[in-house]
Design a protein around this nucleic acid. Sequence first.
DNA 1: TGTATTTTATTTGTCGACAAAAAATTCAGC
DNA 2: GCTGAATTTTTTGTCGACAAATAAAATACA
Lengths: 234, 234
Amino acid sequence: MTKLPEAAIPERKRGEGVKFVYEILRDDILNLVLPPGSPIDEIQLSERLSMSRTPIREALVRLAGEGLVTTLPNRSTVVSNIDFLNLHTFFDALTLMYRVTTRLAAEYRTEADLAQIRAHQAAFTRAVEAQDALAMIATNRDLHAAIAEAGRNPYYSSLFSRLLDEGRRILRIYYSSFDDRLPRQYVDEHEDVIAAIEARDIDTADRLITQHADQIVRQIQRMIAEDRRRPLSL
Amino acid sequence: MTKLPEAAIPERKRGEGVKFVYEILRDDILNLVLPPGSPIDEIQLSERLSMSRTPIREALVRLAGEGLVTTLPNRSTVVSNIDFLNLHTFFDALTLMYRVTTRLAAEYRTEADLAQIRAHQAAFTRAVEAQDALAMIATNRDLHAAIAEAGRNPYYSSLFSRLLDEGRRILRIYYSSFDDRLPRQYVDEHEDVIAAIEARDIDTADRLITQHADQIVRQIQRMIAEDRRRPLSL
DNA sequence: TGTATTTTATTTGTCGACAAAAAATTCAGC
DNA sequence: GCTGAATTTTTTGTCGACAAATAAAATACA
């Protein structure tokens, strides 16, 4: 919040103001630079980014539509809370979308899709080797988003992206407790899934991604269970 | 577009401006009063609703987030096209969401949920008896949205609502070709599904709603096939 | 007459300002 | 010293205006 030294005010063209502030806020929210519950002050933002409140408000409307911020009428907008009490709905939807998008990817993937997917998997592998937890979270998200894109169903892709973003926030809370074993296992699991997608083997891809999804859900649940402070609804 | 006689300018409180214009535009889009491709003129709207462009733009950003309008940079916003070339992705997602939400409803429904669902089913029945195709489309949507609410998974509900809205636009195109047989059949199918939800019989509810969804998909496909002008991507 | 180029007009994206609400503060009364 | 009402301050929602960008019209030229 109080990082004035970043006086990097890149010359923005007309029409990119909303996108600019949208991406900054989105990144800050997903990386928990703005933790859940943080109030977002329009005036403060407009001063920091040296732009008027209008584009900032439009970016906030967009973020509200994606569920990342919550607008209280006539009161401040805040970063949306993570609903720990209803995490099972999140896990349920996440697992289903993992499966559906991967099945479709195995059915419809092109060579170009595979190249994209492999590039993201390579980035994920590098992040694991560098033990960079933040990069792991981000590249893992990008990999699965790329697989979803190969499935070519925008309805699924958009919901899945939203779920992956929410997962990014949740993982980010516990990223300190990553041990070294799990990420390397994920690399291998990814490789197997990608191989099945390449072979257009829908059922195998489904079976593997289901295991992968269950694995991730269990990991998050374990992280929450082991967490001393156990946030209730934050 | 050119309906000036509606000079009903209801006294709006501060903070309801965006909601007001959002709901008007949404209704007009879903009822095809604003057909796909229609340009949305901010100034014209601001004069018609006698408000400034700011709340109108925020409503447009919200609609763009839901995919109902498309904003061309530095050019006019238009009502989103219906992608007839990729309808299968729509049918796929629609069928899956029908199933998932109905299964969850059978699992988690409360008595209050059932009352809500029954009320919507009654409204749908009335619309069928009155042979009011527009009301059928709207009440059918509300019924399934209510079932989804009973499933208590906001991720599914929001995607399903979006799909039901898109279906409303598609059905609205062909509503003239409704024959009398299908709607009455839908009433009975709804009754059976509701009974299964009440009995908490997940598998039966799933089986019935799958049939119901397939039925609807086939009806839309038949309507499109029989349509002489066969819109390509409109 | 048809095409390319300049000029005009329309429309969007952004700005600064103002008034209504809410929150924070001050003050009065006990 | 504490509670509650009145006042001030802050923040939001909306407005009208202006400049960049685009579309439309007018003009020049072949």
